[in-house]
Design a protein around this nucleic acid. Structure first.
Lengths: 214, 214
DNA sequence: CGGGATTTTGAATCAGTTCAAAATGCGTGG
DNA sequence: CCACGCATTTTGAACTGATTCAAAATCCCG
């Protein structure tokens, strides 16, 4: 069963904080961020979603939504009514377990973000984030040779990493100079994956992917 | 149906990283932490659990466990076999939804930790953490008048907040001087809850408690 | 070619770290 | 009850990673 995928322009709020939609959104193409904004106006991105992710599975069982959801790039999305999810849960109880699993993995990734923000310096923090995003993309999209489209601003990166935009810029320069990333204008490539993983201390176990990448 | 609660001494690893137990642990009394350790030896606590929490509900559906679990204080725990959880899920499908809900709330708390580490300075970070823990305790335990037993070392706090132990010490002094906490030897008290919430920017929505406290 | 967004650079400042030592608290055994 | 020893807290001072502010350079799109 398929829904027509909708095109969405870049940098659009898919769902605002406090909204209570009766559909969940499946990301078909593009990148979306879940974020929170503090009183002082600063923003923290709390999760990044890749194609195949349920972007607000939460809203199926939890209200109100305690964070905003916004696209990072142009996206294609597909709306799945909560009524359908409920039906699935009732007629195929074993699929309900899949929902639980999705929620658990979401939490596992979130916990690794806590580690990333709490205990890694800017350079390793960036490296780890790129490892995570690449690994997730590799599973879903046809990604060739550790290169992937990543049309995201340094401000957005700053909000993912809990850093200032200026420092993100300097951090990226460091990673470039260390030959761990190539990223100027086009897609990001990680020329030496082994070195990158080693440097970032990246262990993909927490992603709980079925086909663990090498 | 009840299990005998087991006594556990303070600062004991309940479950080590990589373990695959066939039971989940319900926390009856005390505080436990889930943590990750980096290559360089630094530790980050990724979640704190209060009585009533399933401490490793994860392990029911996800393996291997990607983090360690350790007590912060002496605890009483109760082991619930996975087989039983599976039975419940099969015979009472609607309870499976409760499991999903638990997992979602766990994730929501984790995301707030990301915000706390990413975008709040040391003082507000500590304040927010104390607000969270107090609010969770208030629901479960008989806690009187914004005072609660919190026998945790400053090192443990440092690992929750992604700070050095020394800076935690100075941060606590600040909070004491601002009259936001009283904490010397005995239980921690928050003499002016309104001021504390205001200062920390604490909004308990993300905890998704049924009986929202004032 | 022009204009807004984004990236890059510089310099001063600040929040938090590190290292080291002193002070305090606390349980145990004499 | 005191003395000892270990864990924890507190203090100081030097240092460093990241922030802030401001301006210049570059990019991209129409």
């Amino acid at each position: 069963m398929l829904w027509p995928a909708t095109e969405v322009a870049a940098k659009i709020d898919l769902i605002g904080e406090g909204d209570c939609p009766s559909v969940s959104t499946l990301l078909v193409d593009g990148l979306v961020a879940r974020y929170k904004v503090l009183e002082n106006g600063s923003r923290q991105i709390v999760a990044v979603h890749v194609p195949g992710d349920f972007v607000d599975f939460n809203s199926f069982l939890i209200r109100p939504l305690d964070h905003g959801i916004s696209t990072l790039t142009p996206c294609r999305i597909s709306k799945v009514p909560h009524a359908l999810l409920r039906d699935i849960g009732e007629t195929h109880p074993h699929l309900m377990r899949v929902f639980t699993l999705m929620a658990l993995i979401d939490g596992a990734i979130s916990r690794e973000w806590v580690v990333n923000l709490g205990r890694r310096d800017a350079t390793k923090r960036a490296a780890h984030l790129f490892c995570e995003i690449y690994t997730l993309l590799e599973v879903v999209v046809c990604v060739s040779d550790h290169a992937f489209s990543f049309p995201v601003t340094q401000s957005d990166l700053a909000d993912m990493m809990g850093l200032s935009q200026v420092h993100v810029n300097r951090t990226l320069q460091d990673l470039r100079q260390m030959q761990l990333i190539e990223w100027t204008g086009g897609p990001m490539t990680i020329p030496n994956w082994r070195a990158m993983v080693e440097f970032a201390g990246f262990d993909p176990t927490y992603l709980h992917l079925v086909n663990a990448p090498r």
